[in-house]
Design a protein around this nucleic acid. Sequence first.
RNA 1: GGCGGGGUAGCCAAGUGGUAAGGCAGGGGACUGCAAAUCCCUUAUACGCGGGUUCGAUUCCCGCCCCCGCCUCCA
Length: 488
Amino acid sequence: MSLKIYNTLTGKKEEFVPLKPGEVKIYTCGVTVYDYNHVGHGRSLIVFDMIRRYLRYLGYNVKFVRNFTDVDDKIINRANRECVPFTVIADKYIKEYFEDAENFRIEPADVEPRVTTHIPDIIDFIQKLIDKGYAYEVDGDVYFSVRKFKEYGKLSKRSVDELIAGARVEASDKKRDPLDFALWKRSKAGEPSWDSPWGKGRPGWHTECCAMIFKHLGETIDIHGGGLDLTFPHHENELAQAEALTDKPFARYWVHNGLVTVNGQKMSKSLGNYITLKEIYSKYEPDILRLLVLSVHYRSPLDFSWEKMEDTKKAYDKLKSAIDDVNILEKLPENPNFEGHLYDDIAKAEQGFYEAMSDDFNSPEALASIFKLVREMNILKNRAVKEGGISKKALQSYREASEIIYKILRDIFGLFDSLQPCVETEEIKAKKESEVKIDENLIETLIEVRNKARKSKKYDIADYIRDKLKDLGIVIEDTPVGTKWKKI
RNA sequence: GGCGGGGUAGCCAAGUGGUAAGGCAGGGGACUGCAAAUCCCUUAUACGCGGGUUCGAUUCCCGCCCCCGCCUCCA
């Protein structure tokens, strides 16, 4: 099956053909570790996790690299403010990152390199650019000569003249051209620094990714990803450096996810309108955010709201109960005369799912085909319950439908891996402690009592128990084969 | 200003040159002791506005309006 991917570089959906058949090399820009991750970071992580999983599903051997920027101005500023070495800040937020990633079932990358452990590679990279005439040293700084790279601007679709006209480019007396950007920054007093041929300093932001990509994946990768806001200048600069040096395509497909907004405004630190991932999973199962993110095409903007989380939770529960309700059918007596089965619907849903996913990872449409199957499952279930029996074949088809949905959503969307956060934060612990401890045996007993009351038509007692349980957050559903309950 | 992406029902959100997937919400019905869950029917004379091409456009072209992002660090 062919896969189409929208390539920022060409502005078109293109047939995906990896450099080496059967293998996909992906790099995504990870986070700068100076603060907690928010939903915007989460979206990017979830999107590329899904892309990676889908590629693997298609049979590709995927090598995935995601970096940490663990030295930069923001980290240094924060460290200075808190009077600690910058490594303390970086280490703390790398730890936080892993906690978030684990909670959202973001698979660890195959390599998760840190800038500070790749300094020699970065220096080597810069030196080669100088040797080739694309970079120059001035007073301990090294700059990239943007105008020397004739194709500069091809990714973000802008010309160097426009950029000059924009006049936002900060003039530096050291740069030969205001468009040039720093590959290496001479360290100021008190800043972290490493020895280099140009004196003590530290790498500029755009260079690290190139050096780490070359080291871990090679000079041409298949997919380079990140948030849309990284297109310029970061990815443009990366591309310029890499291609200037190698004269080879740096990335075959540039993939950018849309940004998360709040009330239409970009979620960002500076606006203060951000919601941390911790806050999400202290309130909801991590799966809910995953499903919300995948309910929107990855290139569209996603306006976050708690109302949407609520809506998504309901949709999620619908998927979950369709899968779980196989247990109701299992308990029904066999009825060989029961007509119908789900095999055609399963085939249609699977095909719909994969066609949608293969069209630039159209997860919302893929999800729609799952929901269509869910409806067919519910129709079959209703009928079986009404008729008081089901045929072996129909039951088996429901079982398979249930398994396929579960498998698809787990393997590709990363749902259902676990329904609870796997890392408990203080906030979650506190929340749990404040909750009334619910004893499952006790609930079963109450339900038994209620069912006895129902049998003897003492509905006031039965309803009283149901209401009281609801107050405790337990919802009851009577089914022909017994009473189901769940926590809300 | 330049570049990029959008404007689809009450709210989200896919999609198509031949008359609109899916989710949530609302109304009616079935089921239920009542509920819950689920199903059925129903909710866009129609896809920002105005032109054009076409037998036919929401989908293609042109113009306009509005929103967002990038152009400075940002997933």
